[in-house]
């Protein structure tokens, strides 16, 4: 799937000026506007108008799907990462196509609510290797507590693809940059599971994403699924997959409450 960025309107315009009706372009873009992948929500606003706008009401808004993220995390030393990558390549889908790489910067913005003394955080993620992709704004909820029998972390997550003026928008609303990091690594997919093998770097000079320093000598591994709530069979699926990676990597439910957060 090619990202459809600013290049597309100019293509459209180029042809449009020649007098073609926009309606004829409709068919070409419709199949590309169907699925929404991780971080690759299409620059949809430029394309959507090619679709038939015969909508009586706007899309359902108040009852948009509440997605939960089921998560397992672990780490592996740099020296053994290659072995893991090979194993994942064999286990996951599309083993004959090259492994997908990603190089993202994620910034966490917080706002303090004077009334309740609570802090809200939102995460803004941008692909550094492909700046034309939409930015991703993410709200990540607290992990559900109390369910000891569940094998995975379960937390609510809302992901929104946005235009590139996200940071300005956040700043104007009163959010301030709390911290940022760069994640570089590989992304695998198996069915509806997404596996990330990423190296986390800190940004030494704020504003300059080239000055990087790894946070530790390990890669962080995340196995996650975004699904509607109450899907218990998911846990089994994820557990089975995690078992296949043992003893190279121990993917488990890390108690986020115990993380020492400054």
């Amino acid at each position: 799937m090619q990202p459809l960025g600013p290049a597309v309107p100019s293509a459209l315009n180029g042809i449009a000026i020649a007098g073609l009706r926009l309606g004829e372009m409709r068919g070409k873009f419709e199949q590309q506007s169907s699925s929404v992948r991780i971080r690759q929500t299409l620059g949809g606003y430029r394309i959507m108008q090619a679709e038939a706008p015969i909508v009586e009401q706007p899309l359902t808004r108040k009852n948009a799907a509440n997605l939960q993220e089921y998560l397992l995390q672990g780490s592996i030393l740099d020296s053994s990462a290659d072995v893991l990558l090979n194993r994942l390549r064999g286990l996951c889908d599309n083993s004959d196509s090259p492994v997908e790489l990603f190089h993202d910067i994620e910034q966490v913005y917080t706002i303090k609510d004077q009334a309740n003394q609570a802090t809200f955080s939102l995460r803004a993620r941008n692909a550094l290797d492909n700046p034309q992709l939409p930015w991703q704004l993410r709200y990540v909820g607290q992990p559900e507590v109390g369910d000891k029998s569940r094998f995975t972390i379960c937390r609510s997550v809302i992901e929104v693809g946005t235009s590139s003026n996200l940071v300005t928008w956040l700043n104007e609303l009163g959010f301030r940059l709390d911290y940022e990091f760069v994640a570089k690594g590989h992304i695998f997919q198996k069915g509806r599971m997404k596996i990330l093998v990423q190296k986390i770097h800190r940004v030494c000079q704020s504003g300059n994403p080239e000055t990087l320093e790894p946070v530790s000598q390990s890669f962080l591994i995340e196995l996650s699924v975004l699904a509607p709530p109450s899907q218990e069979s998911l846990g089994e699926e994820m557990k089975a997959f995690a078992d296949q990676l043992r003893p190279l990597v121990e993917l488990e439910k890390v108690d986020h409450a115990r993380l020492h957060v400054s």
């Binding site: 390990s218 190279l248 890390v254």
Partner: peptide, 29 residues
């Protein structure tokens, strides 16, 4: 067989991502 996991690194990395530890200021992991 070389050990492939450094215990504690998972915690370090997750503290960094979720809480911002080691990403602000001079503190290093």
């Amino acid at each position: 067989v070389a050990p492939s996991i450094m215990s504690g690194d998972t915690i370090v990395l997750l503290s960094a991502i979720c809480g911002g530890r080691y990403l602000r200021g001079p503190e290093r992991a």
